[in-house]
Write a protein that binds this DNA or RNA. Structure first.
Length: 227
DNA sequence: CTGTAATAACCTTTTACTTCA
DNA sequence: CTTGAAGTAAAAGGTTATTAC
């Protein structure tokens, strides 16, 4: 059969970790719809696995990766890893989240598990890590969204007030100091704070006239707005 | 050189079991 | 004792990269 780099004791972290990661972004986007379309109408078939005694003892020897047997009733009995086994697996995971076949076999032998079980444990462990990270990212984005919503509300209010002021007292409006606001360059979409951005080219009058392009970091065509 | 089939490794989703409040 | 939620081992089915032909 094929002789992979791992079999030679080489790490394939680039090809086996990075590449799938790039593709799983697409998977995240498209998998749910696909899964929905392909969702079976009937429950998935039950599958036989390692017998309860073998699993519980965790001492099942024998050839690697062979399918386990079934309980007499075909029911799936679930292995619970001991604390020691979990600790060793966790340590190993911290060291390297993916295993090459040699590491996997060594770990399996050390723990008295099949290497398939070690492999599955690592798969699930990676999935849990990713899920946790997704939750963290989601929480962060939620907070960002709340902050931006609040900022948007504040800015809308400020715009309203300025418009009202301009109508009521144009002279006073022209001579007031610039508002505490953020300005986004329409060209490069960078946001700058007017108050501490002293080296930008825009003037207060520019901004009052809606000429926001003046703060751009690169030259852009500025078309004064009709007001 | 290119296309293709086989294979390994990994990922995501789902299922089923265990534990615990 | 029952029940529902959470945690997790394992299976299923998918994608991608590699290799041989």
């Amino acid at each position: 059969m094929m002789e992979r780099a791992e079999d030679l004791g080489l790490s394939l972290s680039l090809s086996s970790s990075l590449a799938p990661r790039t593709h799983h972004v697409a998977m995240l986007l498209h998998a749910p719809e696909r899964r929905f379309l392909e969702m079976p109408l009937l429950p998935a078939k039950r599958v036989c696995e390692v017998s309860a005694d073998e699993e519980r003892s965790g001492q099942r020897g024998g050839s690697d990766d062979e399918d386990g047997g079934c309980g007499m009733d075909g029911s799936r009995k679930k292995l619970r890893l001991s604390k020691d086994q979990s600790a060793v697996l966790e340590d190993s995971f911290r060291e390297h989240p993916t295993l090459n076949p040699r590491q996997k076999a060594a770990l399996a032998q050390q723990l008295g598990l099949r290497s398939r079980q070690v492999e599955v444990w690592f798969q699930n462990r990676r999935a849990r890590t990713k899920l946790k990270q997704t939750e963290v990212d989601c929480e962060f984005l939620k907070r960002c969204c709340e902050t931006l919503t609040e900022e948007n509300r504040r800015l809308q209010k400020e715009v309203q007030e300025l418009r009202a002021l301009k109508l009521v007292s144009p002279h006073h409006y022209m001579h007031m100091s610039p508002p505490t606001t953020l300005t986004m360059c329409p060209s490069c979409e960078r946001v700058s704070n007017n108050n501490n951005n002293n080296n930008n080219n825009s003037t207060t009058a520019d901004r009052r006239n809606g000429v926001e392009g003046a703060i751009c970091h690169r030259p852009i065509a500025v078309r004064p707005q009709q007001s």
